[in-house]
Design a protein around this nucleic acid. Sequence first.
DNA 1: ATATATATCTTAGTCACTAAGAGATTTAGT
DNA 2: ACTAAATCTCTTAGTGACTAAGATATATAT
Lengths: 175, 175
Amino acid sequence: MSRAKARAALLGELEEAMRRSSAQGVLYGQAVANVAGIANSDLECMDILYLEGRVTAGRLAEVTGLTTGAITGVVDRLEKAGLVRRERDEHDRRKVFISVIPETGAKIGELYVPMQQAMEKVFSAYSDEELRLLLRFANEGYKGVLAATTALKGLLDTPPEKRPQLKLKKHPRQT
Amino acid sequence: MSRAKARAALLGELEEAMRRSSAQGVLYGQAVANVAGIANSDLECMDILYLEGRVTAGRLAEVTGLTTGAITGVVDRLEKAGLVRRERDEHDRRKVFISVIPETGAKIGELYVPMQQAMEKVFSAYSDEELRLLLRFANEGYKGVLAATTALKGLLDTPPEKRPQLKLKKHPRQT
DNA sequence: ATATATATCTTAGTCACTAAGAGATTTAGT
DNA sequence: ACTAAATCTCTTAGTGACTAAGATATATAT
């Protein structure tokens, strides 16, 4: 096999492996929501709250891409489940801050522990230098996917006949 | 900073970077479904059809975790959109095989091209050996996530007081 | 002051999903 | 062969999360 072909094969395997693991990641998230007894978007909002801390309802809508009306429902459900609290902003009384109630919110955090343990185990087999490579890739991959998302959405605004002709590379293994 | 602390920091960064990029991957998928004008699960089924080729309705239900009733709806919509075709199995006439209609199905494939191009660009900066490391990690990561999913679901069957005590490691940056 | 803008919530309607069971076909037991 | 049980898909009724549009309350600008 030529060097170029070997690399192409490697890239193909890599693409499939990454697709598979990312799909499994999605399934893990669904399982978490399922076990927690909350909807998928509700969990997504909990994640955002963990990452960003106290945020407004509008911010949740912005980040999730849901309408503000949908967020009202999300927060209602999370509040009823005792996971978050609504607090009016005293400086701008139109705004509503949402924050996690630590005790109950922590129970959601626990559900990520199996994942963290599994990943710790995987990571333990790598040297610091190897981990740095993985980190570099994760960051660059993120930027790549972000750019791809933007490009894809751009296609929507471009009339079909003006779209850059994409050489169609089919998904592997159409049996 | 001690060697151990440096590594812990590295692991933390890695965890966050991977979480972010995988979240962005989900968003890309949603954008694809959005542009294609089909529901999320519909796209998931198209992906499975690309990966596995001609499969039965029951198999789609099994892989997606949806009920067979839901799959009937998925296939109805995909069929109406001209993306797939139903074919009764002649050997077992209860079964219905679903297969992608190549011409229209290829249009969905095109929507993944921006992603493939972006990733190709990212990958181009890595040596073959580095890519092999990434591949190894992707495969091991997949197994890890899979194991974590199983472990998580196992928690459901274990009465709360019998669950292995998980040392709670909170999500980063609860601001 | 009045108008405009902003932030959240409400309402009505839609759509994908589940649970339960119906129909069609195949497989197993006698 | 004949009946019963199992298997596979579809149908039906009901639920829940979502959107679009507009109501409400508060803040900002003229």
